[in-house]
Amino acid sequence: MTSPRPASASQALAPAERAVQLLGGDLSEVALRQHLEGLPTVDAVGLEARAASFGTRSIKTTSKAAALDTVIRMIDLTTLQGSDTRGKVRSLVAKALVPDASDPSTPRPAAVCVYGDMVGNAVEALGSAWSAGKDDGINVAAVATAFPSGRASIGVKLQDTRDAVAAGADEIDMVIDRGAFLEGNYGKVFDEIVQTKDACRRDDGTYAHLKVILETGELVTYDNVRRASWLSILAGGDFIKTSTGKVQPAATLPVTTLMLQVVRDWERLTGERIGVKPAGGISTSKDAIKYLVAVAETCGEAWLDPHLFRFGASSLLNDVLLQRQKLTTGRYSGPDYVTID
């Protein structure tokens, strides 16, 4: 697309249940634009001050212990490298199955997150621990739609998604077309999410969970983040996710706070709960706990649930394990006392 779609009320976009319910039958570019531009604006200074205030909460003793376990349960343990091999994925899965060999009470992360072609390997390595869409084990999440840039034809993106779902992916982490969004072509972004959601459909009629990555580091302004979040929800996303982890800045506390405000507003409006996933750059327990505070104080404790909040992270898990060991034993160990993956 080289220019925004001409504004025409008759140009209907692909149907999407939420958008239809909220906006009525008219899902034209004009209707979408008017809707998104009518959302409340964001004052950057105020948002950042609010986010900083979450960081001043003092989470100690029993609260800290509970928080650390909650963090682990919310992690999407991730490897997204061109150099990923079957061995690397097996090793990641092993870490998810036994995060801390010295303490069997350690909870497991929510999911392992890999590239689409590694889904089969991850499923195989998980064995009986794989949730297989039944929500009682570890999920396999796959990035799709020409992750991380999203610069491919829609056909390629959809096939990428279908392949991952066919291989067993329980969750699809798609990227939005940031170029189209910045062109003001909200309809194209909307359509692609709707179609990707459709591609998440399994043969039995159920859907793989769809996480929509906004890549907030490329959207830059908070107003854009609010619109993109809202648009992704309208189009059928189950989760909104900050970043691919390949662009700086990745997840930040202000951006995540804003996205939490969006899902809180969506619940207020429709009663439906959408998940939020900050990804990239959260590597310490201390930072992760700030996010939990932001979740609980923005959306309420109901959101402290892996179905509604995730961390996309790789090195975070080990820092949490170190802190957990410290709380259990009363002394700090060191990086050699947790397994690298």
């Binding site: 989470i59 100690k60 029993t62």
Partner: peptide, 10 residues
Amino acid sequence: MTFLDYAPAP
């Protein structure tokens, strides 16, 4: 105790 009942931090 729920998460928001932050443990005392005097």
